[in-house]
């Protein structure tokens, strides 16, 4: 099944955006962590928000990484039984589990929106001047993207990778 050219463009830019964000967060994470060590030992000072930033970055990496892994449905799964099933059953099993995963991820995304809204009402700050709802918002966004990926995998299942 081929998607129209316009959609493919959007998809292409989305992939670039995800990867750029992942790179940015990782480099920021390593940079801040190393800078903190140098600042403390050489200049006897530090970045006040570094620890909170680093801990938030772990959450972002978790979700962006999982989003990218969902492109090909490359998540950890128990595939013991599936391996011994006939091919047609494997394909329909894959459709079924992808659809279920999509529903679960979409539900998670919706409740993530509600959580982010709660944090927005609180107006608490997470990292310096960055409010915590901004940090939290990766949860609904990430799961929405995962849901979309599994919707595509439901319509168009990937063949099972055998060694």
């Amino acid at each position: 099944m081929k998607s129209p050219a316009f959609l493919q463009r959007v998809w292409h830019w989305l992939h670039l955006f995800e990867e750029g964000l992942l790179l940015f967060i990782f480099i920021g994470m390593m940079g801040i962590a190393v800078a903190q060590i140098i600042l403390r030992n050489v200049f006897h000072t530090g970045i006040e928000w570094s620890d909170v930033f680093l801990r938030s970055a772990v959450l972002w990496i978790a979700l962006i990484g999982a989003m990218i892994a969902s492109r090909t449905g490359n998540h950890v799964q128990i595939d013991v039984v599936r391996r011994f099933m006939p091919e047609w059953l494997q394909r329909w099993g894959a459709r079924l589990t992808s659809a279920a995963t999509m529903v679960v991820a979409a539900l998670f995304s919706w409740h993530g929106v509600r959580f982010a809204y709660l944090e927005w009402q609180d107006q608490t700050m997470a990292i310096g001047i960055v409010p915590s709802w901004v940090v939290v918002s990766i949860i609904p966004f990430g799961f929405a993207m995962i849901a979309i990926r599994y919707l595509i995998l439901t319509v168009n299942p990937k063949p099972m990778v055998n060694e």
Partner: peptide
């Protein structure tokens, strides 16, 4: 108090 701290978990 003009003290520069070391923030750690």
């Amino acid at each position: 108090f003009n003290i520069s701290p070391t923030p750690l978990p």
